[in-house]
Lab assay of single mutants.
Amino acid sequence: AEIMKKTDFDKVASEYTKIGTISTTGEMSPLDAREDLIKKADEKGADVVVLTSGQTENKIHGTADIYKKK
């Protein structure tokens, strides 16, 4: 799966169907969080990951919607 910015995804959204939401939390780098989200998306058969939230304090927390091409 590839990560797309919401603004970029909005241009092609009609080509995809939302298949779920994924999240990651833990003591990790932003890059590790990104890789974890991609891994989870791949496991669910998603083609595209669109980040919906991200937070960093002591731990990273990120959520994303996942989509499959129609």
Rank of each mutant, 00 (worst) to 15 (best):
A41F: 02
A33I: 10
D10C: 13
K6C: 07
F9G: 00
S29L: 08
K69W: 05
D47W: 04
Q55T: 10
T56I: 11
T21E: 09
K39G: 05
K59M: 14
T24L: 11
I60F: 14
L31Q: 14
L31H: 12
K18I: 07
T21P: 00
D65P: 03
T7A: 14
D36Y: 14
I66P: 02
E27S: 13
V50C: 03
D32C: 13
I66T: 02
D10N: 07
K5G: 09
L51G: 01
A13H: 06
H61M: 13
S29G: 09
K59E: 14
T7Y: 09
E35A: 15
K69Y: 07
Y16F: 07
D65T: 07
M4S: 02
T52C: 12
A41S: 03
K69V: 04
E35N: 14
V50W: 02
K68Y: 04
S29F: 06
A64I: 04
A41P: 01
D32K: 11
E2F: 13
K18A: 06
T63M: 09
L51C: 12
Q55A: 12
G20S: 03
K70R: 09
R34N: 07
I38E: 02
G54S: 13
M28D: 06
K59Y: 15
T7M: 09
G26N: 10
K39E: 04
E57Q: 10
V48C: 05
Y67S: 00
A33G: 05
G26Q: 10
A46D: 03
E2G: 06
F9R: 00
E27P: 13
H61F: 14
D65A: 04
V48F: 02
A64H: 09
T56R: 09
A46S: 03
G45H: 07
S53I: 14
V12T: 03
V12C: 07
I3G: 00
E2H: 14
A1W: 03
H61I: 15
P30Q: 09
K59T: 13
M4R: 02
S53R: 07
K69R: 10
I22A: 02
A46C: 03
T63H: 09
E43T: 06
Y16H: 00
L37Q: 01
K70E: 04
T25P: 08
K59A: 13
I66S: 00
I38N: 03
M4L: 05
G45R: 05
T56P: 10
V49L: 13
A13C: 12
K70H: 06
T25F: 11
K39Y: 05
T25G: 11
T7Q: 11
V12Q: 03
S23Q: 11
I19Q: 02
F9I: 01
L37F: 05
D47E: 05
R34V: 13
G26L: 11
G54W: 15
D47V: 06
S14V: 08
G26K: 11
M28P: 05
K40V: 05
K40P: 00
D65G: 03
E43I: 08
Q55E: 13
V12H: 04
L37R: 00
K39V: 05
V49D: 01
T52V: 10
K5V: 11
E35K: 14
A13Q: 08
A46H: 01
D47T: 07
D10T: 06
S14C: 15
V12W: 04
A64F: 15
T21V: 08
D42H: 13
K18M: 09
T21H: 07
G54C: 15
E35V: 12
I66F: 05
I38P: 00
T56S: 12
K70A: 06
A1L: 07
V12M: 05
K6R: 12
E43A: 13
T63L: 08
E35L: 14
V49F: 02
A41T: 02
I66G: 02
V48Q: 01
D8A: 06
F9W: 04
K6N: 05
T56G: 13
L37E: 01
K18W: 15
A46Q: 00
T56M: 12
V48T: 02
D36I: 09
R34W: 13
E15T: 07
D47M: 04
M28E: 06
T24G: 04
S53M: 14
I38Y: 03
T52I: 10
K70G: 05
A46W: 00
G62S: 13
S14P: 05
E57T: 12
K39P: 02
I38H: 03
T25E: 13
G54K: 08
I22L: 07
D36G: 05
K5N: 14
D8H: 05
K68W: 04
I3R: 02
V50K: 00
D36E: 14
K69G: 03
T52W: 13
A1E: 00
A13S: 11
Y67Q: 00
H61C: 14
K44W: 14
H61Y: 14
K11A: 06
N58K: 09
I60M: 13
I38M: 08
A1F: 03
A33C: 10
T56E: 12
A13E: 06
T52H: 13
Q55N: 11
A64D: 02
V48K: 03
